[in-house]
């Protein structure tokens, strides 16, 4: 049972959504876009989040689209993960998204909610970080499309009131060979201690990681290092190559997470097309 009060709006268009967001804000209220609700409901119940209004985006046509055309595959942000997983276009995304929460929760939990959520894992973003992908963002100035490289740094860089409408992935990069490894404390229905996903291109391995640090990231420094040096060297100087220190919390020590990451690196490198000697 949720003990606080907020109001609920279900706009039919993204324009309406943006407008009502702005309007509520100008009234001094704190609105939130509401997608699968899995995070918002648990956090409001626990009083960890206190929105004044929820703006449900699930009726907005753009947010529900799922199609491929020309060069791109398009995923609406309000698609439940189950739908994303079942779509045949992007095998790594299906594999990675399958590990989030559990099957029943994934029937509600959305792609956009996972990626824009507050938790440090946001695993569904990993495949997008690895491919040439675009974020379609609705804002009060209309719709803009940004490359993931500029739209994401530790988290999605959305201005308050911006709405992630869609994610688009270049078909060719979605079809690249891939591998991913997820490790939990002890049992699969849990947050990851480590989730490492890789895609293999002619120029080397691309790597994105969740669970290891306080946010999911594309491990560009490691990708570069792997091109130049042998794996062992890379593994020995992880500290320099990671965007922040390795997380230490009640689920695992930094030491163990680091060990898992090194094991994963070995496996990912040995798996396919690695340009370095393992």
């Amino acid at each position: 049972m949720i003990a606080q009060s907020f109001s609920y709006y279900k706009p039919a268009t993204f324009k309406e959504a943006i407008d009502i967001f702005g309007q509520l804000q100008s009234e001094g209220k704190k609105p939130l876009y509401y997608a699968g609700g899995t995070e918002i409901i648990s956090m409001t119940r626990k009083e960890l989040l206190r929105p004044d209004a929820l703006i449900d985006i699930k009726e907005i046509a753009e947010c529900r689209e799922l199609y491929e055309d020309g060069d791109y595959i398009c995923y609406g942000s309000a698609l439940p993960l189950t739908k994303v997983i079942e779509a045949p276009y992007f095998p790594l995304l299906s594999k990675v998204a399958r590990t989030v929460a559990d099957h029943t929760v994934r029937n509600r939990l959305t792609l956009g909610g996972n990626i824009c959520g507050r938790l440090p894992y946001r695993e569904a973003v990993l495949p997008f970080l690895l491919s040439d992908s675009l974020a379609v963002i609705g804002s009060k100035d209309g719709i803009r499309t940004e490359s993931i490289a500029t739209a994401y740094d530790k988290r999605f860089l959305l201005t308050e009131g911006d709405l992630l409408l869609q994610l688009k992935v270049d078909k060719q990069s979605a079809a690249l060979p891939y591998h991913s490894i997820r490790k939990e404390r002890n049992g699969s229905v849990d947050y990851p201690l480590l989730h490492a996903a890789a895609m293999y291109t002619d120029s080397g391995l691309k790597l994105a990681v969740s669970g290891l640090c306080a946010f999911p990231f594309r491990a560009e420094l490691i990708e570069e290092a792997l091109k130049g040096s042998i794996l062992n060297t890379v593994q020995n100087k992880l500290n320099e190559l990671l965007p922040s220190s390795i997380k230490q919390d009640h689920l695992a020590s930094a030491e163990y997470r680091g060990a898992l990451f090194n094991l994963a690196l070995s496996e990912l490198v040995s798996k396919k097309g690695g340009t370095v000697n393992a």
Partner: peptide, 16 residues
Amino acid sequence: VQNSDLRSYKILRYGE
């Protein structure tokens, strides 16, 4: 207590 809900207090699941 750091694991005071069933998200973090883990118990055996189907399949395990």
